[in-house]
């Protein structure tokens, strides 16, 4: 079934966006990315270290996976804008996963700094994909700012707690005119399926695959879950009922 994901005029046949953090080795990461079938994958920007071994960038290039730099580790709009500009220069992409976090313990987005950074980056010509709280109002404001997608969290980064507020995700999906990408909190395949069933356009995950006992196998599970959830969303679930509805004819 031809059902591409469309972000800022670019199409992707996979609706599973991967992160690269947490993998025990580049080799394990490589196999997991292949099993996930992802076409868009995040990297972080850090100071060059002479000790850094191997390049995640080479791996993504070889696999033909589009790179999505993030601004992980930034606490202010000014920091995030600077890192995004450095990423654009280093990686020759104006796409950025915008992350502005409030504190190390929760890694929750700082909504005030996030919105300010989004405004500046959109004005500077970036395609901005913001990691945001599951707040429908903030999601709307980010879209109005000109973000190419909104990426609400299911639960805190790396927590594996799944989607804590499905109702809010539904509200965001209902009113969004840009793709809604469930970002953060996925613990296992059913969480990814639920995100897609709620109408999200894609899922972004890392920890649940890279730190699984078998990352390659979990990546395959996620690929199937995202597809299954998408198909179920398109097919339309039956309404929930308080009482039974006989599936066999009552008469005869």
């Amino acid at each position: 079934m031809d059902d591409p994901l469309l972000i800022a005029g670019e199409t992707f046949s996979s609706r599973l966006i991967m992160g690269t953090g947490g993998a025990p080795s580049l080799d394990v990461l490589d196999r997991a990315l292949a099993a996930a079938g992802t076409e868009l994958t995040t990297v972080a920007m850090r100071r060059v270290s002479p000790a850094s071994a191997g390049s995640v960038l080479d791996l993504l290039t070889e696999r033909g996976i589009r790179v999505l730099p993030n601004t992980a580790g930034c606490f202010t709009a000014a920091e995030a804008v600077r890192v995004a500009r450095l990423a654009r220069e280093a990686l020759h992409t104006s796409w950025v996963k915008l992350e502005v976090i409030a504190d190390e313990r929760t890694l929750l987005p700082d909504p005030v700094e996030l919105l300010a950074a989004a405004e500046q980056l959109v004005a500077d010509g970036f395609t901005v994909l913001p990691y945001t709280s599951d707040d429908p109002v903030l999601a709307r404001r980010l879209e109005q700012t000109g973000c190419a997608a909104v990426m609400p969290l299911g639960s805190p980064i790396g927590s594996g707690l799944g989607i804590r507020n499905q109702h809010n995700i539904e509200l965001i999906v209902e009113s969004a005119g840009v793709p809604v990408i469930l970002d953060a909190g996925i613990g296992t395949a059913s969480d990814a399926a639920v995100a897609m069933e709620l109408g999200c356009a894609a899922v972004l995950l890392a920890t649940s695959v890279t730190r699984a006992r078998d990352p390659e196998l979990m990546a395959e599970a996620m690929r199937l879950a995202v597809s299954a959830g998408r198909l179920a969303f398109l097919a339309g679930r039956v309404p929930r009922r308080r009482y039974a509805l006989a599936s066999s004819p009552p008469a005869g």
């Binding site: 920007m45 850090r46 960038l57 790179v67 993030n70």
Partner: peptide, 8 residues
């Protein structure tokens, strides 16, 4: 001086 590393 920054470069891309595993993350996100």
């Amino acid at each position: 001086v920054l470069t891309a590393v595993q993350g996100g």
